[in-house]
Write a protein that binds this DNA or RNA. Structure first.
Lengths: 223, 223
DNA sequence: TGCAAATGGTAGCAATACTATCATACAAGT
DNA sequence: ACTTGTATGATAGTATTGCTACCATTTGCA
C-alpha cells in the first residue's frame, strides 16, 4: 500500500478541500496545466471546466475564485520547498552545507519522485516563477494575512533565516536575506528566460548558473 | 515661461500620446489616484472615466487596455528613477558615494519638486511597489519586450550595473545585482508594510531602514 | 438497498472589456 | 466668416467573465 501524504494547507484557501476528492485533485492537476499553457490572466474556471469535462459550478464549490486557487497552488509550493529543505538537510551538520542545499532546493525545486501523483512540482515551480508574486500582491493582502493565508511563506522564511544565522550569527538581516533569496531565485530564473538583459545569466543551463550565482552572493554576504 | 519637460516613452505603450493633451494628462494623473485607492485588479476604464467625467470610449483612444496603462506608468517610473540617478550623481566622483545615492533614489524615489505637474511621483512609487511586477509578469512578455516596452528597465539596470562595476570591477554579477537591487527595494518596502514577518524592517521609518539595509548588503558584497 | 454527498446540467444576471457610430466643440488656416 | 480637422462626448451594442441558483443525476458507503 502506498503511503498517503497529505499537505495541510490553511482551510481559508478553499471552500472544500480539493485533496479529498477525485474532482478536487483533478482541479489542482489541470489548473497547473492550463495556467502554464495560457497564463493566469486569461485562465478562468470555465476554460478549466471544459478541459476536465466538468462545469464551472462544480469548480466554484472548491474555490471562491481564481485568485484563491492560485494562492492555494503557491501555498502548496511553499510547503513543498519547506519539505524539501527539511528532508534534504536532515542529518547534515555543517550549516554552510545546509545553506547550499537550500539554494539547490529553491532553484531546482525538484526531487526524484514527486510527493503526490496529482501535482507535477516542476510545472508548479514554473507557475510560481511566472505568476507567484501575484498571489500576494493583492489589495486584500492584510485581510488574507490575518487569516493565515501566508503562513507557509513565513515558515519557509523562518527556516531559511535560522540557517543563515547559524552560518553567521552576526549577519544583521537574516529574514530579509531569506525572503530575498526566495524572490531573487524566481526573479532571476524569470529574467534569464524572458528578459535576459536584466541578468548576468546567459548560459543555456539557467538553473545551474542561478545556483552558482546565489552561492556566490551568499559567500560574500556571510562567509 | 516654465521649462516644459517631456519624458519620452516608447510609443508602443499607447495609442495616442497622453502627454500631448489635457485629457491624456488627466488620465495619467487620475489613474494613479484610482489604482492607489482601489487596487489594480478592480480598477477599470469605466471607473476612471466616471472619476474624471469622461467616457470609457475616450480612454480607449489613449490606451489599448488597463495592462498597457499600468506598463506606461511603470515605464514612467523607470525613466524617473533613471533621471534621478543621473541628476543626483552628476559631479560626484566617488563610485561608492554614487551607489549610496542610487540606493537613496530607489528607496525614496522622490525629489523636492516634481518633474511634471500631472504626476505625483510618490504615489506612483506606491503603485510600483504594490503592482509593479504585474507589468512585466505577463504572458505577452516576449512580444512586448521585442517592441521595446521594457527598454527603460534595461537602461536603468545598465546604469546601476556600471556603477557597481566601478565600485568593484571583480564582482562577477553586476547586472543581477542591479536588477535585484531594484526588485529587493520594492519588495522589502512592500513586506515592511504588509507582510512584516518577511523582513527585518520593524522600525516605523521603513524607508530609512530599508536604505540602511541595502547599504549593508552592498558593503558586504562589494567592499 | 437506500440515503447523503458529490457532481452535472442548465439558466440567468451583473459587470467587464471592449467597438462602432454619430454628434458636438473648438482651433487653425484661408 | 468658412472650412476643415481633431478631440471629446454620448449612446448603444456585443462577447466574455465571474459568478449564483436550482434541480437532476450519479456515486459511495452504511
Amino acid at each position: 500500500m502506498p503511503v498517503k501524504i497529505k499537505i495541510d494547507l490553511n482551510d481559508g484557501l478553499y471552500l472544500k478541500d480539493p485533496q479529498e476528492s477525485k474532482l478536487g485533485r483533478k482541479i489542482i492537476k489541470f489548473s497547473i496545466e492550463v495556467i502554464n499553457k495560457i497564463g493566469f490572466e486569461s485562465f478562468n474556471f470555465k476554460k478549466l471546466a471544459t478541459e476536465i469535462n466538468s462545469t464551472e459550478a462544480s469548480l466554484y464549490r472548491y474555490f471562491e475564485n481564481k485568485h484563491l486557487l492560485l494562492l492555494y497552488l503557491v501555498n502548496w509550493y511553499w510547503e513543498w520547498i519547506n519539505y524539501l529543505i527539511i528532508f534534504n538537510t536532515m542529518n547534515i551538520e555543517d550549516p554552510k552545507k545546509k545553506l547550499k542545499i537550500i539554494v539547490h532546493s529553491l532553484v531546482f525545486a525538484t526531487m526524484d519522485n514527486s510527493l503526490v501523483e496529482f501535482i507535477d512540482e516542476s510545472k508548479l515551480h514554473k507557475i510560481v516563477v511566472f505568476e507567484g508574486t501575484k498571489a500576494y500582491h493583492t489589495f486584500e493582502v492584510n485581510k488574507e494575512d490575518s487569516i493565515g493565508l501566508f503562513k507557509s511563506y513565513k515558515d519557509l522564511t523562518i527556516i531559511i533565516a535560522s540557517i543563515i544565522s547559524e552560518v553567521n550569527p552576526d549577519f544583521k538581516y537574516p529574514i530579509t536575506l531569506a525572503s530575498n533569496l526566495f524572490e531573487m531565485t524566481n526573479n532571476q530564473l524569470y529574467f534569464a528566460k524572458h528578459l535576459p538583459k536584466l541578468t548576468d545569466v546567459m548560459n543555456s543551463n539557467h538553473e545551474k548558473e542561478v545556483e552558482n550565482m546565489l552561492n556566490y552572493f551568499l559567500e560574500k554576504l556571510l562567509f
